[in-house]
Design a protein around this nucleic acid. Structure first.
Length: 241
DNA sequence: AACTCTTGCAACCGCCCGCGG
DNA sequence: CCCGCGGGCGGTTGCAAGAGT
């Protein structure tokens, strides 16, 4: 028998069921998010390792906030996208509660539209005007350089002004346990609400409850980016929509 | 009420990179 | 140096739900 399932010989595809989520979350809670190849054989999940990893990082991972992007988050995403391009994982590292997938989706469905509408606005000509963009660009480059050199000079150690808010903190049993327990109880609650015989994907109900998760404040880089760059330009952009 | 169109997002796919043998 | 594997990333797709007619 070909086990564990390879991604090219997938046994099961499509939306995850609450049952699968619980199995995966329990396993990760116990063993930590590593060696994904071992997950399917050890849990009995008929999913490939990649699918398990994706499900965990994009959905089950503790501390994930879903939906309802704040103005501040949107500004930050817009700015970082302008600065870094479509490097969603890097952008996500500045928004600890958001996944790269979530940010990418939000960009593709909301922000891209917002910005393209904006480019049709006559008012926006002032911002789009060459001089302004050059100015902004120069500022961007300067600040990016500053951030990188600070990071390098500190040996990537988080500092008061440039702090690395990693989306993938090293697995800490106590931290993860509490949060995973919270997640699992949410899963179970949602599961009970639904007709379990239908194996309804968990997405809908979790979306609602996730909004009630405590909101972490943005950390330093976000703050100075917003203060120094995004500030006026981004406020203009968003005000026009 | 019924149908069509649009939107939002979870999940998949394919490529790339780093590491170990 | 080469190869295979695991993991990460970005782009794309498919489908469910909501909006519009």
């Amino acid at each position: 028998m070909d086990w564990p399932p390879r991604c090219d010989k997938i046994v099961k595809k499509g939306p995850w069921t609450p049952e699968e989520d619980i199995v995966l979350a329990s396993y990760i809670q116990e063993h930590g998010p590593c060696n994904w190849r071992a997950v399917p054989p050890n849990t009995g999940l008929l999913r490939c390792s990649k699918s398990c990893r994706l499900r965990w990082t994009n959905y089950l991972r503790p501390g994930i906030k879903r939906g309802n992007f704040t103005d501040q988050e949107e500004k930050l995403i817009i700015h970082l996208q302008a600065l870094l391009g479509n490097r969603w994982a890097t952008i996500a590292s500045h928004l600890p509660q958001r996944t790269d997938n979530d940010i990418k989706n939000h960009w593709n469905t909301h922000l891209k539209k917002k910005l393209s509408n904006l480019h049709n606005y006559g008012d926006h000509q002032a911002i789009v005007a060459k001089g302004q963009w050059e100015k902004t660009l120069q500022k961007d480059v300067h600040l990016a350089k500053r951030a990188f050199s600070e990071a390098l000079s500190l040996g990537l150690k988080p500092s008061s002004s440039v702090q690395c808010s990693c989306t993938k903190p090293p697995f800490s049993p106590s931290y993860s346990y509490a949060l995973s327990t919270e997640n699992i109880s949410r899963l179970l609650q949602g599961w009970m609400k639904n007709d379990s015989s239908k194996s309804v994907p968990i997405n809908q109900y979790e979306k609602k409850s996730a909004d009630s998760l405590p909101q972490l404040p943005l950390q330093s880089p976000e703050t100075w980016l917003l203060d120094e760059i995004a500030g006026e330009v981004m406020n203009d952009i968003l005000r026009n929509n």
